[in-house]
């Protein structure tokens, strides 16, 4: 893949959202859209097309895993790579997210290089 990519960041914490957007801003050809929770995320998915989704798991309005399930059943976005971000470090959560179709799993506290590396890997961005 090449050109400009679009990324949807679904995170209820403004601080984490800001941190993720700041980290992703280092990828020059990535346009980031923010969503406050799972429902807002689905709304934004319905309005546009995204190349990658990054979502928190623990959100008050819609749980991140539910969002992954909805994305995988949506014909437009069923093949879009999804990265799950959560504070939970247990292998149970990791395998649950992967079972539902998430492509990668990052645990908090997040590190910008780790997020960037995952996004580049899933979008097959080189360099």
């Amino acid at each position: 893949m090449s050109g400009t990519y679009t990324c949807l960041v679904v995170e209820d914490s403004p601080m984490m959202r800001q941190l993720l957007v700041l980290a992703l801003s280092r990828l020059k050809n990535l346009k980031v859209t923010e969503a406050d929770d799972g429902v807002d995320g689905l709304r934004k998915l319905a309005a546009g097309k995204f190349d990658i989704i990054i979502t928190d798991i623990n959100m008050p309005i819609m749980y991140g895993l539910k969002l992954v399930k909805r994305v995988r059943s949506d014909p437009t976005h069923k093949d879009v790579p999804v990265i799950i971000i959560t504070t939970e470090g247990s292998s149970e959560d990791r395998s649950r997210a992967l079972q539902l179709g998430a492509n990668a799993y990052i645990t908090k506290p997040i590190q910008a290089p780790q997020v960037i590396a995952k996004v580049k890997e899933l979008l097959k961005i080189e360099g």
Binding site: S13, P14, M15, M16, Q18, L19, L22, T87, K108, P109, I110
Partner: peptide, 27 residues
């Protein structure tokens, strides 16, 4: 930058304390 931004984002005591906790938990 994010910590400083969030710490002084609001003049609400509850929000300030919540942001401090969040910074420590999330960052």
């Amino acid at each position: 930058y994010v910590a400083s931004f969030q710490l002084h984002l609001t003049p609400d005591v509850g929000a300030v304390v919540r942001h401090i906790k969040e910074l420590l938990e999330q960052l």
